[in-house]
Measured scan of single mutants.
Amino acid sequence: MDVFMKGLSKAKEGVVAAAEKTKQGVAEAAGKTKEGVLYVGSKTKEGVVHGVATVAEKTKEQVTNVGGAVVTGVTAVAQKTVEGAGSIAAATGFVKKDQLGKNEEGAPQEGILEDMPVDPDNEAYEMPSEEGYQDYEPEA
C-alpha cells in the first residue's frame, strides 16, 4: 500500500510541476504579447503594419512553449490582441483601416495563427491545408 501511495504522490508532483510550467509559459506569452502591443503603439504610420505582424510573430513563438489545451486559448487571445492593436492603430490615425491585415508588401496577414497546427491532446499534428499553395516548377 505504501508503494501505491508513494507512486500516487510522485504522479501528483509531476502534474503540479507540469501545471506550473504551463502557467509560466502562458505568463511569458502574455508578456511578449504586451511587449508587441507597446511596440505597435510606438510606431509611426509606416511601421504600424509591420508592428502588428511582430506582435503576432512574438506571440506565436511563445505559444510553442505552452502545451496542451492552453495553446488553443493563448492563440485565440493573441489573435484578438493583434486585431485590437490594429483597431487602436486605425482609431489613433497611425494607419488607414484599409491597410490593416496586410503586410508591407500588401499581402493579407489573416491566418497567421489560424494555420498553425495545434492539437490540445498532444496526440497528432496535421499540416495546414494546401489550398493556398501553388506547385513550383523550376525553369529549365
Rank of each mutant, 00 (worst) to 15 (best):
G84Y: 11
G106Q: 05
V118Q: 02
K60S: 03
E83T: 12
E20Q: 05
V15M: 04
F4S: 00
V74A: 04
S87D: 04
K60N: 01
P117T: 04
D2L: 14
T92R: 10
D115L: 12
A17Y: 04
M127C: 07
A29L: 08
Y133D: 15
A17L: 09
A69C: 11
E28A: 10
V48P: 00
V52Y: 15
V40E: 00
D115I: 09
L100I: 13
P108N: 14
P108R: 12
K32T: 03
E20F: 12
L100T: 08
V16D: 02
A78P: 02
A85T: 03
E105R: 14
T64A: 05
E139M: 07
K102W: 11
K96Y: 11
A89V: 12
K34R: 03
S42I: 04
V95D: 03
G132K: 11
E105T: 12
V52Q: 00
D2E: 11
K60F: 02
A85W: 12
A56W: 12
A69T: 00
D98S: 06
K21I: 09
D115P: 13
A29Q: 04
I88C: 04
A78I: 15
V77D: 01
M5A: 04
K32H: 13
V26A: 06
Q24T: 09
V16S: 06
G106S: 13
E105Y: 12
S129A: 05
D119R: 00
G47N: 07
G73T: 09
S42M: 12
P117F: 09
P128M: 08
V55L: 10
V63R: 01
E20H: 14
E46V: 11
K34M: 02
A53F: 02
G47K: 11
E35I: 12
V66H: 03
G25P: 02
D2Y: 10
G67E: 03
G41L: 01
K32N: 02
K58C: 03
T72C: 05
L8H: 00
A91D: 03
G106T: 07
A89M: 04
E20L: 14
V3C: 03
V55E: 00
F4E: 00
T72H: 14
S129L: 06
P108I: 06
V82M: 12
D119Y: 08
H50D: 11
K58V: 08
Q99H: 12
V70P: 01
E28P: 02
Y39P: 00
T64K: 04
D98W: 12
V71R: 11
T59P: 00
A107V: 07
D119T: 03
G93R: 03
M1E: 00
V49E: 03
E35N: 14
N65H: 04
F4L: 06
E110N: 08
V26C: 14
E46P: 02
G106M: 10
E139I: 12
Q109F: 07
E13Y: 15
G86S: 15
S42D: 03
S87E: 11
P138C: 09
K43N: 03
A124F: 15
F94D: 14
S42R: 15
V66N: 01
A11C: 15
K32V: 07
G7F: 05
G73I: 12
E35V: 05
L8Q: 00
V55A: 09
A56F: 11
M5Q: 02
G73A: 14
Y39W: 09
G106P: 13
E131L: 05
E139Q: 08
Y39M: 06
V16I: 05
E61R: 07
A30S: 10
E110W: 04
A85C: 14
E61S: 07
Q62W: 09
V37Q: 00
E46R: 14
V74Q: 00
D119Q: 12
H50C: 09
S9G: 13
E137T: 06
V74S: 01
K80H: 07
D119A: 10
K80M: 06
D135W: 13
G73N: 10
A107T: 14
K80T: 03
Q24N: 13
V37D: 00
G41A: 15
V49T: 03
G36Y: 12
P117R: 03
F4W: 07
K45M: 07
M1L: 00
K80F: 08
I88K: 02
L8C: 03
K97C: 04
A53E: 06
V77S: 01
Q109S: 14
K34S: 02
K102I: 09
Q99V: 13
A19I: 06
G73H: 04
L38I: 01
T75D: 02
K45D: 00
G93T: 05
A107L: 11
V77A: 13
G93D: 05
G132E: 09
K21P: 00
K21V: 05
P120A: 13
Y125V: 11
T44P: 01
V52H: 01
P128T: 13
E126A: 15
D115Q: 09
G41R: 09
V3E: 01
A91V: 05
V71W: 08
Y125C: 04
K21F: 07
T44C: 12
A30Y: 15
V118W: 05
E131A: 10
P108V: 06
G51Q: 06
V66G: 03
T64Q: 06
A85D: 02
P120R: 11
D2K: 10
G68K: 15
A11K: 01
A91Y: 11
G106E: 09
P138G: 13
T72S: 05
T81R: 03
V63N: 00
E105G: 13
K80Q: 04
A17C: 09
V63T: 03
V77K: 01
T72F: 15
E114S: 15
Q79N: 10
G86Y: 09
P120M: 10
T92W: 14
E61T: 07
E46A: 11
E61C: 09
V63D: 00
G36I: 08
N103P: 08
A76Q: 15
M5Y: 03
V118D: 12
K43F: 06
G51P: 04
Y125H: 13
Q62L: 07
K34C: 06
A91Q: 05
F4Q: 00
P108H: 12
E110K: 12
A78K: 05
M1I: 00
Q79G: 07
E104I: 02
Q99E: 03
K12W: 06
V118L: 12
E130A: 08
E35C: 13
Y125I: 13
S42G: 11
E110A: 04
A85L: 14
